[in-house]
């Protein structure tokens, strides 16, 4: 099931993020160079207020897509725009809240200091920060640990601290790479509620996850990637109507196993 027409619209509409014909190859080795085709002519359009899910097997290119968006790595060809600004422009990231896949934060900082850094660098003024910090800490359940160094946090606490880092500056766009990793069921419920709440506020969310259950529940649009290529795009309604309420897994396996078929 694909909605090609939807992809060819010019990027002047209220589009948050627009990936246009992205390709990226990684080369490694000094003499016998190895080339890994991480992304092959991928195009995506993420509308404002959308919760967009990207799923795929390991090595599909999901993280590469995100890293290109965030400017950590360079494009070989194509372009990425965020609210009309090129992704290479640092200012494009002002409105982005990023939750990395591997939750590594500065060992010796406290969550308060981490949040302050996130807020100040996104242009939030200091008096706003302290109020927002306490609210956010309460929501995340980190109020008691707010003065402890991040290195003393458990995995679940680190993940929640990451959310604080990503949300403190009230960004319009959230990039969540494996947001549920390390969380117990209570933590996961907390995050699901937060994501739904953010959607109500009209935020745009780009979600990468292995947990198809969550993707199914939360995402309006779902994209399946495999071996650097974009295989399928579908809305939640489409999947439910075709495969039932928990049909994403079935759909996913069907798509992946049928990769011999052409996309276009």
């Amino acid at each position: 099931m694909f909605l090609l027409g939807y992809l060819t619209l010019p990027p002047s509409d209220p589009v948050s993020i627009y990936f246009s014909h992205i390709s990226k190859t990684f080369t490694s080795g000094l003499f016998r160079r190895k080339h890994v085709n991480a992304l092959d002519d991928v195009s995506l359009r993420i509308d404002e207020g959308d919760i967009f899910g990207i799923i795929g097997p390991n090595g599909a290119g999901k993280s590469t897509l995100i890293k290109l968006l965030m400017g950590f790595i360079r494009l070989d060809s194509g372009s990425i725009t965020i609210h009309g600004k090129d992704a290479n422009d640092p200012n494009a990231r002002t409105q982005i809240g990023y939750l990395p896949e591997s939750a590594y934060y500065y060992d010796h900082l406290t969550v308060l200091e981490l949040m302050a850094f996130s807020a100040i660098t996104s242009g939030i003024s200091k008096n706003v920060i302290s109020k927002r910090s306490s609210t956010l800490l309460n929501t995340m359940g980190l109020e008691n640990a707010k003065n402890r160094k991040l290195r003393s946090y458990s995995k679940g606490m680190t993940q929640r601290a990451g959310f604080c880092f990503a949300l403190i500056h009230a960004p319009n766009i959230l990039i969540l790479d494996e947001p549920m990793s390390g969380l117990d069921p209570l933590g996961r419920k907390m995050i699901v509620d937060i994501i739904l709440d953010l959607k109500k506020q009209g935020k745009t969310i780009l979600l990468c996850s292995h947990i198809l259950n969550d993707v199914e529940r939360l995402c309006d649009h779902i994209v399946i990637m495999h071996q650097g290529k974009l295989l399928e795009t579908a809305t939640r309604q489409d999947i439910h109507s075709k495969h039932g309420a928990h049909g994403l897994e079935e759909y996913f396996l069907q798509v992946i196993q049928g990769t011999q078929h052409e996309k276009y």
């Binding site: 640092p90 590594y104 500065y106 850094f117 660098t121 880092f165």
Partner: peptide, 17 residues
């Protein structure tokens, strides 16, 4: 090494900054 640079580069920092 520890990938903490993402905390910085995910904000509107240029490489020069």
């Amino acid at each position: 090494d520890r990938q903490t640079i993402y905390c910085v580069l995910s904000k509107p920092f240029s490489r020069g900054e």
